[in-house]
């Protein structure tokens, strides 16, 4: 006898929600909640129907070992002042899917396999071979470059924690000029965990938001996606802040972090030939590799380097490593941290 009542209540509830949704969005939008995504129909007329898929942040996209604690949900304040539900994601600060490899070459005969990568000064990245070290005065058109000991051929490397601290920062200490800068992950106890607050459901911003001085998001393997490396400051001190082959390097403040997308965090392979997913931006939109399975880059990217498709909704495509950046701006609202009073 009691069973019909819950069914009736359910039916009434569904009716009220449906009516409410339609009423709230009567001017232009219809929201359909699906299993893993929300489809927003922002059609303004019957003849011109456009549907945009909005894909929520999926905690299962993160690699095993990428996080130091379970993802939790909390209320957050977005850059437009609205409150929203956000995920609190604490990354390990070290890649969960590979061992960090070498950065600087040991001597002027080192090969590409023995060291990482760096910029050549004209918009390209190169393996830091011994030849690269020898060619620095030519590459940077400055005869003061000399990163090695002429008598031994050994490269000057910041091989202690003290030298790492003095050199792996924008204001390089004078004694570490003409050094290849590298730091061991051991100096930061295997990685510095970082906490990210990201809207669960990305919300398109009225205006794009500029990339700030800190990070732009997180990789699926637990590594921070940093803002562009301060290359000019690094080079002006006659140092190179060598990346490993994954475009990551270490300092004592941020630990291991990426300055470019070299393919090492593209862990979510797409079945349709689209480039693999490698991380999330701070606004909750996914970041994918630059090229698809046919080595083709999209031609319809917006100013933030994003576009929309039916499967992934709006998403970004990271730039190449040589561009020292991932995305151009945030298309969505980002969560404000406790000490922030406005947009980044």
């Amino acid at each position: 006898m009691l069973k019909p009542i819950p069914h009736l209540l359910k039916a009434l509830t569904v009716c009220f929600i449906t009516i409410g949704l339609v009423a709230c969005n009567s001017d232009s939008e219809e929201v359909i909640i699906e299993e893993d995504s929300i489809v927003v129909d922002d059609s303004s007329s019957d003849s011109d129907t456009t549907t945009e898929t909005i894909v929520e942040v999926d905690p299962f996209n993160f690699e095993s070992g990428a996080l130091v604690s379970s993802i939790t949900t909390e209320t957050c304040t977005l850059s437009n002042g609205d409150e929203a539900s956000c995920y609190r994601i604490d990354i390990a600060g070290a890649p969960s899917n590979y061992e960090i490899s070498s950065f600087c070459p040991k001597n002027i005969t080192s090969t590409a396999d023995e060291a990482g990568i760096w910029f050549d000064g004209s918009g390209e990245v190169y393996d830091i071979t011994g030849d690269f070290i020898l060619s620095l005065p030519t590459l940077y058109n400055d005869s003061n470059w000399k990163l090695y000991d002429e008598s031994t051929g050994l490269v000057n490397i910041t091989d202690t924690e003290e030298s790492c601290e003095g050199a792996a920062r924008p204001d390089v200490e004078e004694q570490y000029q003409n050094h290849c800068v590298e730091c061991s992950i051991d100096y930061v106890n295997g990685g510095i965990s970082a906490s990210f607050l990201i809207p669960i459901t990305p919300i398109a911003a009225a205006q794009t938001i500029n990339v700030g001085r800190v990070n732009i998001g997180l990789a699926l393997n637990g590594v921070e996606l940093a803002a562009p490396a301060p290359v000019d400051a690094i080079l002006s001190a006659y140092t190179i802040a060598a990346f490993d082959d994954c475009a990551g390097h270490i300092n004592l403040n941020e630990g291991y972090h990426y300055h470019g997308e070299a393919g090492c965090s593209q862990t979510q392979i797409q079945s349709d030939g689209h480039s693999a997913m490698m991380g999330y931006a701070l606004d909750g939109y996914g970041i994918f590799g630059m090229l698809d399975d046919t080595n083709t880059e999209p031609t319809d990217l917006d100013s933030c380097r994003g576009h929309t498709d039916e499967t992934r909704g709006y998403h970004y495509h990271a730039a190449s490593v040589s561009e020292n950046m991932f995305i151009g701006c945030f298309r969505g609202e980002i969560a404000l941290t406790e000490d922030e009073t406005g947009p980044r």
Binding site: V211, R213, S303, R305, A319, G328
Partner: peptide, 18 residues
């Protein structure tokens, strides 16, 4: 080819075409 975007508060050309 791209558009000028603020990166660390300074405008840079962010490529959005191959």
């Amino acid at each position: 080819t791209g558009t000028c975007q603020a990166m660390n508060e300074v405008l840079m050309c962010v490529r959005n075409q191959p």
